[in-house]
Amino acid sequence: MTEHTPKAVVLLSGGIDSAVCLQQALDEYEKVEAIHIDYGQQTESIERSNAEAQATAHNIDLHTVDYRTVFAEFAEGTIEDKEYDSNHMAEEGHSVGYVPQRNLHFLTSAAAVAEHHTDPGVELVLFHGAQYNDSTDYPDCRPAFIEAAQKAINRSTDQHTVTIETPLIDLDKPEVLTLGEKLGVDWSLTFSCYNDQSGTPCGECPACVERKEAFEKADIEDPVVAQ
C-alpha cells in the first residue's frame, strides 16, 4: 500500500491569526497550500493582497474562493458597507463582526477545494485560526463546533481523512502574537481593520482596538499602525 505525505491547507484571510497558522503549518508539514475566501468584506482588497504576498513569500499555492453571491443573501458584520467604531462593539447580542455560519461555510468549502486539488488517499489537515478571545462572541470558534464540523466533513467523503487543526484556540491575542514572533511571522503582511480599504487601518474599529492592545501587551512593535 502506497503511503501518502499529509497535506496542510491553511484558511488564509490576510489577518494575524491565519498568518500564524500558516507559519505553524509550514513548520510542521512538507506539503502546504492556502485558501483565501472573498465573501464581500469591506477590506477584501488588502486582505487578498496580504494573502497573496504571504503565499508568494513561502512559494505555496493559493486557491481563491468567491463567496460574495452566497453571503450577500444574509449580509451582516464586516460584509456590510458601514462604519465601525470603538463605541459600537456589539449589536443584538453578538459582535459587530459577526457573520452567520461563516466558519461552517469556510471549513466545508476549504475541505471541498482541498479535495479537488489533492489525490485520493492523502490525509488533509485544515488549519483554522480560531483563537481564545473569539470564543466569547463567535460560537463557530469554539472547540465543540470545530469537533462537530470535522465529523461532518469526514462523513461527507470517502476520498480523504480530514483533520481540522486549531493551534491558537487556547491562546489569547497577545499569546498568538508571541507565538507568531517566535515562528517568524511578517506582521507587515497582516491587516485587522474592519473599515479601511486602502491598507491604512482606521485605529477606531473593534479590530483595530484589539490589535493595538494585543501588540502592546505582547511588547511587539506593530509595523501596520493607524496614521
Rank of each mutant, 00 (worst) to 15 (best):
V162D: 05
A55F: 13
R68I: 08
I60H: 04
D61I: 10
H160K: 02
A53S: 14
P139W: 03
I153C: 10
G129I: 04
C193G: 06
V176C: 08
V65F: 14
Q197L: 00
Q150C: 13
G14I: 08
I169R: 12
L126G: 11
P174K: 05
V20F: 12
D85E: 07
E165G: 02
A148V: 06
H128I: 08
P139N: 03
F127T: 09
A152V: 15
E213Y: 00
H94F: 01
A75H: 02
P201F: 07
R142A: 02
V70K: 03
T43I: 00
K173L: 05
R155L: 15
V176F: 05
V96F: 11
L171E: 05
A55D: 12
C21T: 13
T163H: 15
E76Y: 02
P100S: 05
C21Y: 12
G40M: 04
G40L: 02
D186C: 09
S86T: 01
G129S: 09
T118M: 01
A148K: 13
T200E: 08
H4E: 01
D61K: 15
Q42H: 06
D158Y: 01
T178P: 03
P223I: 11
P120C: 01
Q101R: 03
V96H: 09
N59H: 14
L107C: 11
A57C: 02
D27A: 14
N87T: 12
D196R: 10
Y132V: 00
E175G: 07
N87H: 13
T178H: 05
A34M: 11
K182H: 14
V65N: 02
P201D: 06
H36E: 08
